[in-house]
Design a protein around this nucleic acid. Structure first.
Lengths: 116, 116
DNA sequence: GTTTGACTTCGAGCACGCTCTAAGGGCGAC
DNA sequence: GTCGCCCTTAGAGCGTGCTCGAAGTCAAAC
């Protein structure tokens, strides 16, 4: 599929897709006869995974590291798993922090409701 | 108290405290005889509140807007409350999103555990 | 055959939120 | 008095993650 189609389906812009490829976050996507990028379903799955890592706050640098390990082969599976586990803990901690902040916010809003 | 002490107690750097003052996020802090900033407890409370807004992802621009409203007086209380309520919804949505991402991550980690 | 439009690469530019530097002032310790 | 240190202001610089622009290619539409 074309870069526009991949952009539409991944929710990323075509600019961003090219950028991700440039920095090695996605492998060199197949090119068709014209030299245009030709994405397939597996590319989209990988993009969806990346998007989830991004949305949970993983840095581009760490995602690149993960992508490198993946390309390096099966012997890096354990290190990848450890990366994900460490990241998982960060996400859990972030949720806990936000949950605390949310109740502080609720408290503050309540005082506004009472005084106005 | 000195800027260093305020930095230590707020968890922000002295650079950041000056920056916040410059952009109007905190009012012009009192100066002592030497022209040095002299923070008081209310300044610290305000910084703690700002820090909480920041940590929940409110932009500096929105925090400035809130600070402006606060300085404008009691008649802006309702608008401030509405700002906080809108922000509250964003935070709640973010927690929901992260919670979903967390289980996706857990699922991925589980597949790693099973295949290695 | 030329216009349109989507694609290519590569590098510059931008928004955000700091973070640091330069240049200078003032005070205490020696 | 001079060294050291912390403060001041104003403005430049930086890291991150895009986002955009320039210059050029190619194929289909008219």
């Amino acid at each position: 599929m074309t870069i526009q189609e991949a952009a539409r389906r991944s929710g990323l812009s075509a600019h961003t897709l090219r950028y991700y490829e440039r920095i090695g976050l996605i492998h060199a996507v197949d090119r068709n006869g014209r030299g245009h990028r030709d994405y397939d379903e597996r590319d989209l799955e990988w993009l969806a995974f990346l998007t989830r890592l991004r949305s949970t706050g993983m840095s581009i640098a760490d995602m690149c590291r993960y992508a490198q390990l993946l390309r390096a082969g099966a012997h890096t599976a354990e290190e990848r798993r450890r990366m994900l586990e460490r990241h998982r803990e960060k996400v859990a901690a972030r949720i806990a922090e936000l949950t605390q902040d949310l109740s502080a916010l609720d408290y503050k809003i309540k005082t506004y409701r009472e005084t106005t």
